[in-house]
Nucleic acid binder design. Structure first.
Lengths: 141, 141
DNA sequence: CGTTGAATAGTATTGATTATCATTACTGTT
DNA sequence: AACAGTAATGATAATCAATACTATTCAACG
């Protein structure tokens, strides 16, 4: 069950780390395929999953959309533009700031939290200001 | 574009409101099918979507899992058991308690936030206390 | 009645992800 | 170098949630 460093695994990691965006598995597949045309989509998924489990990369499971991957693993949250789908990093809101101590947890033991902020990125905020209709109406699903 | 109150639409809403759990569309489909065997899964999805848009029900898009639906629409958050998948209601953590004013939003205009807490439900917390391995290790995906 | 538009049932399709499996690649070890 | 054991790959099928499509049914109204 030990890990091996294959050409494809290394390439996936390299390309992911180059990107400041947060590509989906298929986006990354298209990118690595430019250098390794015979690579399989399953290989991309498999390696991303393994590296996420090993803490080498970060898997961002967005609600109602494909998972995205992040090459930088320092603690941070994400904000997603409801108009263009772009995902950006946010400095992490610390867990203790996020969870009031007087909260009623209905018996649960809290282990983690997942936050996703939604908003308009600078570009879209400008663009939508000039339009007549609400940008939120454009939002898919 | 006006709404009609069909038998199936009413039944879906009734059954959803009866449940304190937060069923997925297919779970609800199985339930309403007991009373209306010829109902179509598409109809369930369509009506849930419409009622969610109309604010009659609440759609909970969990990260990395199927969407769940909630018959009660008052503001609240959710906590999911990482062991058994059960979802329970939490009193809403107010947005201003959740978001520090000095946060850097990298130019975004924030519209909304989605929080999902993860933890162990009372039953699973007890059960896992007797086991030798960590319950978190059981966590899929 | 007959027409019209909305909703439905049934089914096909899409998209994301996971599983399967035969083949290939790597890692020691003689 | 030949070998055995194991891990990873490529190709493809399978699964699962969600949506799209289409012919049919339904409800309201003149």
């Amino acid at each position: 069950m030990q890990q091996r460093n294959t050409r494809q695994r290394q390439l996936i990691l390299d390309e992911l780390r180059k990107l400041t965006s947060h590509p989906t598995a298929t986006m990354l597949y298209d990118i690595v395929r430019r250098r390794l045309p015979r690579i399989s989509l399953g290989t991309v998924y498999r390696n991303l999953e393994q590296m996420a489990a090993a803490g080498m990369v970060r898997k961002i499971e967005t609600a109602g959309g494909p998972a995205r991957y992040d090459g930088s693993i320092h603690e941070h949250d994400h904000i997603r533009c409801v108009r263009c789908g772009r995902v950006d990093d946010l400095p992490a809101v610390p867990l203790d700031k996020m969870i009031p101590p007087d909260q009623d947890w209905v018996g649960y033991r809290v282990l983690d939290r997942r936050v996703e902020f939604l908003g308009l990125c600078p570009a879209c905020a400008n663009a939508s200001g000039e339009e007549t209709h609400s940008p939120v109406a454009d939002r898919k699903r």
